[in-house]
């Protein structure tokens, strides 16, 4: 952003490409290819929604299902009657909200402090960057977090995933681009370092903060690995892990039913796909509206040319 304002003073309006170009046969072919590729991305989702809305027996027997002959909601009804789905949704919402706040707090503090030329900065920076390239591996990680008593706690899925170093460095890079004169004038007015961060730096960085808050939120919603390692109680598992068991373990659903809850005759792929659709629903709904933020993260810091 800072870069863009810098450029604009020199900018001579040059059309990006020669737009006075005729639509050729090559353009038509390209549009057909791109349509097919887009279709190949959309089809698995369409397939999942389709399978989730027909009875299992119809799905298995039909040679090729392109359109539902009759739509039923039994699969979704079953999924929403399944008590663990609600535990999973609750846990995942909590992890996403609390985790995003926690991650953003740590990320912003770290990113801002690293822009300052304080004694020891290079060493701190080295310590942080080093963790991107070398880790203790899963076993020591498991033993340490286990030893901290986080097993079977939702915090085991929040606390250890605080800072994504890659995101933090991009945010820090962005902070560096904010003109120092703004901070200096605030300082002359008697503002402290925390006040400057909150009153000056953060308001100027809202788009990039929104982008990385979104990335953190998506990461936390997609969290299953920490749950797999640390959560034994099914009531504490995130939605993704519940889904994983529904997909992978044919016995999981029937074992986890409440006494008296009837095992449906539609049990199988249709139920699985209904669970998949429920789990990806929030991201699917947000994506079209927040596209700009979803797609901008990488280019904010990665390409400097």
């Amino acid at each position: 952003m800072a870069d863009a304002t810098h450029k604009s003073s020199l900018d001579i309006k040059v059309p990006k490409r020669n737009r006075i170009r005729r639509f050729s046969i090559g353009d038509a072919i390209l549009i057909i290819i791109m349509s097919l590729l887009s279709l190949s991305v959309i089809l698995p989702f369409y397939n999942a929604v389709l399978v989730s809305m027909v009875p299992q027996t119809v799905y298995v027997r039909s040679p090729l299902l392109l359109w539902p002959k009759e739509v039923i909601w039994d699969n979704y009804r079953f999924i929403f009657d399944f008590r663990l789905i609600w535990y999973g949704i609750g846990n995942s919402v909590f992890i996403t909200v609390a985790g995003t706040l926690y991650s953003m707090l740590l990320t912003v503090l770290c990113a801002y402090a690293l822009t300052k030329d304080i004694p020891g900065r290079r060493f701190v920076r080295f310590l942080i960057v080093f963790t991107m390239y070398f880790s203790g591996g899963i076993i020591p990680y498991f033993l340490i977090i286990n030893g901290l008593g986080l097993t079977n706690s939702l915090w085991s899925m929040i606390l250890p995933t605080g800072i994504n170093v890659f995101y933090m460095l991009i945010v820090s890079n962005f902070f560096t681009g904010i003109p120092p004169s703004l901070e200096e004038s605030a300082k002359i007015d008697g503002a402290g370092d925390f006040t400057i961060l909150i009153r000056i730096i953060l308001p100027l960085s809202l788009p990039i903060l929104a982008t990385f808050a979104l990335y953190y939120a998506v990461d936390k919603w997609n969290e299953w690995w920490h749950g797999l390692l640390f959560i034994r109680k099914v009531e504490k598992q995130p939605l993704q892990l519940i889904l994983r068991q529904i997909i992978q373990d044919a016995q999981f659903l029937s074992q986890q039913l409440l006494p008296g809850q009837e095992k449906p005759d539609v049990y199988g792929d249709s139920i699985k796909m209904a669970a998949v659709v429920v789990t990806m629903f929030p991201i699917m709904m947000l994506y079209p509206f927040l596209q700009r933020y979803f797609l901008s993260g990488l280019t904010l810091g990665a390409v400097k040319e």
Binding site: Y112, L127, T131, G136, P140, G162, F194
Partner: peptide, 21 residues
């Protein structure tokens, strides 16, 4: 002070496992 929490995070969740190596 700003670095306190982030560094605690890195030490506990990134460097303690290295000790476990």
């Amino acid at each position: 002070l700003m670095l306190l929490l982030p560094m605690a995070f890195f030490i506990i969740f990134k460097y303690l496992p290295l000790y476990g190596l």
